[in-house]
Write a protein that binds this DNA or RNA. Sequence first.
DNA 1: ATAGGGTTAG
Length: 819
Amino acid sequence: MSLSYFHLKHTFVKARIPYSCRCICNCAPPPFVSLHHAPFNQPPSIFSSLLHQFSNTLIHVKSIHAQIIKNWVSNENFLASKLIRVYSNLGFLCPARKVFDQCSLMETTVCNAMMAGFLTNQQYIEVPKLFKMMGCCDIEVDSYTCMFALKACTSMLDDEIGMEIVKTAVRRGFHFHPYVGSSMVNYLVKCGYLDDARKVFDGMPEKDVVCWNSIIGGFVREGLFKEAIQMFLEMIGGGLSPSSVTMASLLKACGESGLKKLGMCAHGCVLALGMNNDLFVLTSLVDMYSNLGDTDRAALVFNNMCGRSLISWNAMISGYVQNGMIPQSFALFQRLVQSGFGFDSGTLVSLIRGCSQTSDLENGKILHACIIRKELESNLVLSTAIVDMYSKCGAIKQATTVFGRMGKKNVITWTAMLVGLSKNGHAEDALKLFCQMQEENVAANSVTLVSLLHCCVHLGSLKKGRSIHSHLMRNGYALDAVITSALIDMYAKCGKIRSAEKLFNNGFHLKDVILCNSMIMGYGMHGHGHYALGVYSRMIQERLKPNQTTFVSLLTACSHSGLVEEGKALFHCMERDHNIKPLDKHYACLVDLLSRAGHLKEADALVKQMPFQPSTDVLEALLSGCRTHKNINMGIQIADRLISLDYLNSGIYIMLSNIYAEAGRWDSVNYIRGLMRMQGLKKIPGFSLIEVGNQVYTFFASDDSHPRWSDIYQLLENLRFEVEAEGYIPDTSCVLRDVNEPMKVKLLWGHSERLAIAFGLLSTPYGSLIRITKNLRVCVDCHTVTKYISKIVQREIIVRDANRFHHFVNGKCSCNDYW
DNA sequence: ATAGGGTTAG
């Protein structure tokens, strides 16, 4: 509650006060003392003046009020409005309401005063009620009424009654007045009706700075920075001088659109206009330079500020966090605390975001404790940040707990939780949470839906993916590049490459790199390397600049299709033609491509001549090649090097023990198992998913938790006889345990993908397609068996593993045994 | 008697 506003606007007016009372006002004794001796039937202006003078003390106001009642004179609404204002400015709405309710004659002035009272006390919800009441009782609505009511609707983002008010105001021509007009523009902008705002603005005959500020601020809010800047230029072209508010909006536009040069010009303007003492403008400058990635300049402005608000501090702290300078942000926080300024939820939000970025659970917990201590848990933004922090740190349990305790939640909260679940491998729970979210009538935004599409990819659930696609269409989401890319990814990874293709062709006009990258990746996974290259040449034709991810996708695609020469050529043209320096991941792709194709020596040579130390990804690609092509010596060497780099990576141990197992060196296999046990490392359990009906079923190896497990094993037993009759010989090289052959075969027949396929055969109609999703790579033996099964039962089977798709038809696989 | 625009944070 701020009183200052009232005080600024109301200065004491001597001339109005009758002589008899002047002494009272001049020497200012408490009015209740003096007025006791005052004669009755005072003119109302005396009370009005007294209310002016003693408006900051409730007890005085009350006593004047009592006197007014005692003297109850004509022109009562004049004093009633005054009382309502004074009471509500003091934060006492109850007496204000009482005065309002007791008015015997309802008039516009009283209603306006009451509205203003609700506004200053942020009781926005009461304003439209009052407005409606005025309509029902045929009380005239004036320009003040409209403005107050619009302000309340702006704060509530109410676009129903707000629009009604707009219509009323337009009908009465109020919007031609610069004050009402700019309120209207502001309201329309905040509710997302930028076009209407523009119309109102264009129709205004007299535009002052505030009008311009409203429309410029609107464009900035909507992210239409170019338009905002255009309007700014138009405004100064018309001879108007920008105010500090104009400059704040302009700086924001420059910062968010990355226009550094213009931003610096704007900084120059600020100095030229003599605004270098304006706290708002300086804070905006700090924010702008942070957004432009220039924390040095931001800090320069910040350190040279003669006074700082908490918001200035927060802007600087957030600037550091935004630019990944987490230690600096904490250091500044310390400075803030030491300077005795205190901190607020805004400060904490930035610091928590810093913890999320660095997965710093320890500091995150400290900040969480701080929030609890300061009883800030009810702050929506803050709690959402905490949920996000725990999720990003992998502490999904804590995230869920905080989420569950939150009373108020909005889309962002729900989305943070959804993303957390999906990123931590709980895709199914994420989808369940989405249902709950719909039950609670929270409308999803595009971020929510994109993250849900990722969940569907995780689960290999085409049905759920489709239902989200239809949700998008039904609810009128524009298929922008982000959503389209996610959809392409979903369809491609759920096996519907044609649907992905269709979306891509319809969305190509968006000329978006990520869109192309998704399609390239999709083709790559399906083994359509040449199509992937086709997308690339289309990009080049359309002068669309590929980025580093494009090359990761392209090289992966080449790798999966065995396009060795093409891949090498691409790798070499990256830097030459597109000025993209090959990063570690590109080397990893190329090494993968070469070693998969059996060019182990060349791959090894490439690793040796890398300009920087190869990461584990690069070496793992090489190790995997050694395994496939059974190069034991090189494999051991690489594994050794890898373990020295990352001794906690269970994948390396597994791969090495695979190599040993294939060579029959069981002592070494057991030694490695022992090492893993000692370090508490566990093999990532392999599992397969299949969607039947409306459910996704999960199978682990040798799983007997499914209600139909005995049917499944019986079917597999029958299938085993049949495939053996077709000439299948088990390849037990991928069994990592030192057990006898029959036992190894038994273990093979317990692999999760076989269980899922058998369940699929049991529970889907004859002739229909079976889709399996596996988290790890499919083993050689399962690959062979699946080929046989597809022929015996005459069913198409699609298996998506950690890398790519295998489409089995009539005894053959789309990958031609190259993967 | 009563009036409009702005800076940080998920």
